[in-house]
Design a protein around this nucleic acid. Structure first.
Lengths: 196, 196
DNA sequence: ATTGTCAGTCAGTGCTCACTGACATTCAAT
DNA sequence: ATTGAATGTCAGTGAGCACTGACTGACAAT
């Protein structure tokens, strides 16, 4: 049976693992270090996860984002370019920030674990398609100047991806407010760039 | 004496090392694999680099970009926003593409090697300052609308950084031409976004 | 008081890996 | 043909690491 106590320790161990994997990489961390950081013995780690790799794999299941973005596109779009893009950006960065540790892990894991890469690469792909569809729609409604919606989608996606990097590491070069200001300016710039 | 033969093997070994580090990460590659990929015995690797880490460190000396970007700003700017930004982007992406393997290495190395991170983080910082100064100048000359030059610089930098990611891995989702087209559209969009 | 669950201890196994030393071999230049 | 530098071979060392097994202790529910 999965008692709450059991789950709590499993959780703590995973938290510690993600934290350490993000900083030092999968190969850069020992199971002993993970266990110690979680406050348990190494033995306990192996009782909950039968291998180091399975621990990583379970952690990856935490990493969502495609699904969440899809939901946003399905429900919340107004048709106002400025509003929509701002909203999309906000959600995107919230998701990226929440998952930043796992993202660092994924970026650091090499091709040793190929399934992981496939898995991770799917997500931005989904978002790109959602954005492209959206821009096609907007163009049909005459809300864009003569641009290639695909390219515009990619530009918007990677602009945001780039900006998200700023908050990946924990150095506080930007406060939350400063970052929001930066985002605001970026999205505004982008909207001006694609409208007439 | 450093004979040409000696240098050639040292070079081959380093090339192989960078290639493998980029794909599997520093900890994910053995010295034996590196030597084999380079076509030499492991022993020879250690005769040229007295440790695995020193091999990585020597490799990092290859990684330039701040200096190159500085040179571009010093000489080649015309004052025409569109031209300048397009030129800067082009150079940036050429440098990033040339150094892509090392960039992958750097991104994958964990905090085990902190000097490396410091070293790497300096480069975008320099470029950001160069861009900020440039946008301040342009604004003084009345070539920008009422924007914050710092934020504009950061947006431009990270937009390009994001786009550079597209070509980091060797999956050929974009051809060289398609990528240039994408860049063109991005820079164009950006220029429209910051001018009146 | 008993029993089941979860965690700790400790000693250990088997493997991998960075790195070495002694000696043999290849190769290029004279 | 000789020499010296560069590379190969092979066997090994010592450390680190994922992972295990046998056993003990803490605690909560019945």
């Amino acid at each position: 049976m999965d008692t709450p106590r059991k789950m709590a320790t499993a959780q703590k161990i995973m938290d510690a693992a993600i934290e350490l994997f993000a900083e030092f990489g999968y190969d850069g961390v020992t199971t002993e270090q993970i266990a110690e950081a979680a406050g348990f013995s190494e033995k306990t780690l192996f009782r909950h996860y039968h291998s180091k790799q399975s621990l990583l794999e379970k952690a990856i299941d935490r990493y969502h984002y495609a699904e969440e973005m899809k939901a946003i596109f399905d429900r919340k779009l107004s048709g106002n370019l400025d509003e929509d893009l701002w909203m999309i950006s906000e959600h995107y960065h919230r998701i990226m920030y929440r998952n930043r540790k796992m993202l660092q892990v994924i970026m650091k894991v090499g091709s040793n674990l190929p399934e992981l890469h496939q898995h991770a690469r799917r997500h931005p792909e989904v978002l790109r398609n959602l954005l492209a569809r959206y821009f096609v729609m907007m163009k049909e409604q005459g809300k864009l100047r003569d641009v290639d919606p695909e390219k515009v989608a990619v530009t918007f996606l990677y602009m945001n991806f780039g900006l998200a990097q700023i908050r990946m590491n924990d150095d506080m070069t930007y406060t939350e407010e400063e970052f929001q200001g930066l985002l605001k300016e970026s999205v505004d710039l982008f909207v001006r760039g694609v409208t007439v």
